[in-house]
Design a protein around this nucleic acid. Structure first.
Lengths: 247, 247
DNA sequence: CGGATTGTTGAGATGCCTCAAGTAACGTGG
DNA sequence: CCACGTTACTTGAGGCATCTCAACAATCCG
C-alpha cells in the first residue's frame, strides 16, 4: 500500500493502488502519519499483491498452517467451517479493506476455510514480519490490536439472540455502512453471496431469508432483484437492527 | 506475577502469588523463559493487584474509557450488555487466569459491563504500558496477539446455530477443560452464576436450562445439586458438544 | 419466622425449520 | 440462438424446538 510508486517487488502494472489502499484497514498505518519513513518503507516491502482468484477458489483451507494475514483489495470472500455431518457454518464475509486471518493466530492454523465469491485480489503480509515491524512501529502495533479487538466485537454481534428480521436488517446495514465509509453508495449494492450463504451466516434457513426479504420489500424497506439490493428506508432498517448493532 | 518476591509496589502480604500466577494467561510471558530480565522486571512492576470485589460489584461499566486489561486471579466474572428494552445479553464468563478487556481496545471504551459473581481479585495492567513493553519483548507481544485471537474464536463458538443440548454440554465441558488444564478437578465444580445468567449466555430461556439439566441428570450424564455440578459421563458430553467445540 | 430471590415444572403459543413443489436465471452444447 | 439441464431462488403447508406465561418449591437472608 505505498503512497508512492512501489520501490520493492510490487508489480509495476498496478496502476490503481491509491484507490485500493485508501479503503484498506491498514491505510492509516501505511500512510506516513508521523511514522518513521524507514518503517513505512518496510511495510511497503512486506506486502505481496496476490491474485486474482476466481469465484470458488480457496484462499485458505481449514487446518492449513498460519503464516500470513491478507487484506482484501477487490472482491468478496467467505469464511466457513464444515461440521462432522458435512454442513457449512458461515463465519463471515470479507469486503475490500477487511483483513483475513486474525482468528488463525491462536493455534497457528486456519480454523476455517476461506473462498472467493467473485474475482478477488489480496494484499498478503507475512505475520511474523508484520509483528516484527509492529514492535518497531507503535502505530502499526496499535492498529493490529484494534483490528483484532474489532473482530472480537464483530463475532459477538451475531452471537446474540435476535429475530430473523433483526438479523437481516443488521446484515443489510452492515454492507451499507461498509460501503458508505469507503465512498460508495450506502443505498445500492450487489450481494456477492447466495441466499444459502446468507442464511448460513445468519443462522436461518434459506427459505426464511427469502421470506424476510419479500416482506421487507412489501413493507417498502428495500427493493430486491436477485442479488441487487436497494435500501429504501434506512431509518426503519436502523431501528430494526439497533438491538443487534447497538450503535 | 513475579517469580520472586515483588520488588516494586506489590502488596507484601500476597503469599499465594506463585499459585495464582501459574494458572494465569500471562504466566508464560511472566516466567523468565528466555525473556530478558529487564523486561520481566518491568512486567512485575506493571501489575497492580486489585480487589477483593464482592459479588455484584462492577469491575467495569459499559462506555467507560478503556485503559487497562485485567487478569482474573480468583473468583468468577460476568460480562454483559443491556439492550434498549432493558434485557441483559451475557457475553461471557471469566475464570481465574482469563483476561478481561480485549474487546474494549477497539473503540477505546468498554462495550459491556463486567461484574463480580463472587469474591474476585484481579491483576490490572495498564494497556499502554503493556503495549510498550510488548514492543520490546517479542514473547509478550506474541502472547497478546494469541490471546486476542483466542477471544475471536471463543466469540464465534457460541454464534453457531446449535441445539439447547449441544450448547449446554459445551458450556459444562468448557468449565471442565478450564479447570483440568489448571490442575483442578475436571468432573466436579461449582457454578458461580445463576440459571438465568447461564440461559442468557447460551441464548436460551431459563426454563430450558432447567429442563436440559434435569434431562441430562435423568440420562446419567451429570449430577446437579443447585450450583454444584458433577460430570458423570464425559464421553457422551463430549460427543454432544463436539459440533460446538470442534476439537 | 417471613419475605425475597432463585430454581423447577407444566401447559399452551409461536417463530423458525423442514419438506415438497414450483419458478426463474444461467450456462452449455448443439 | 435456442433447447436443455442445472443451479438458485421462491412459495406454501405442516411440524417441532424453544419460548412465554403461570404456578409452585426450595433456598437464602434478615
Amino acid at each position: 500500500m505505498p503512497q508512492h510508486p512501489a520501490s520493492c517487488f510490487l508489480p509495476s502494472d498496478d496502476g490503481d493502488e491509491f484507490q485500493f489502499c485508501s479503503t484498506c484497514a491498514f491505510s492509516n498505518a501505511c500512510r506516513s502519519e508521523g511514522y518513521d519513513k524507514a518503517a513505512l518503507h518496510e511495510l511497503e516491502c512486506l506486502v505481496e499483491h496476490i491474485g486474482p482468484f476466481e469465484a470458488g477458489e480457496y484462499l485458505f483451507r481449514e487446518g492449513e498452517p498460519f503464516n500470513a494475514i491478507a487484506a482484501v483489495r477487490t472482491g468478496t470472500v467467505k469464511a466457513f467451517t464444515v461440521d462432522a455431518s458435512g454442513r457449512e457454518q458461515v463465519l463471515g464475509f470479507f469486503l475490500p479493506g477487511e483483513v483475513i486471518g486474525f482468528n488463525a493466530i491462536h493455534g497457528s492454523r486456519f480454523p476455517c476455510n476461506v473462498v472467493a465469491l467473485d474475482t478477488v485480489m489480496l494484499c498478503r503480509f507475512s505475520f511474523p514480519s508484520m509483528a516484527a515491524l509492529a514492535a518497531r512501529t507503535s502505530g502499526l502495533q496499535a492498529q493490529l490490536f484494534r483490528l483484532l479487538s474489532q473482530d472480537i466485537k464483530k463475532a459477538a454481534l451475531l452471537a446474540g439472540d435476535f429475530s430473523a428480521d433483526e438479523r437481516m436488517a443488521a446484515f443489510l446495514l452492515g454492507f451499507s455502512r461498509h460501503y458508505a465509509a469507503r465512498g460508495y453508495s450506502a443505498r445500492r449494492f450487489t450481494l456477492a453471496m447466495s441466499r444459502t450463504d446468507i442464511a448460513n451466516y445468519l443462522r436461518l434457513a434459506a427459505e426464511t431469508v427469502s421470506r424476510v426479504m419479500r416482506r421487507f420489500q412489501e413493507d417498502g424497506l428495500i427493493k430486491v432483484n436477485r442479488r441487487e439490493v436497494e435500501l429504501l428506508d434506512l431509518d426503519r432498517l436502523e431501528s430494526l437492527a439497533q438491538s443487534v448493532l447497538r450503535a
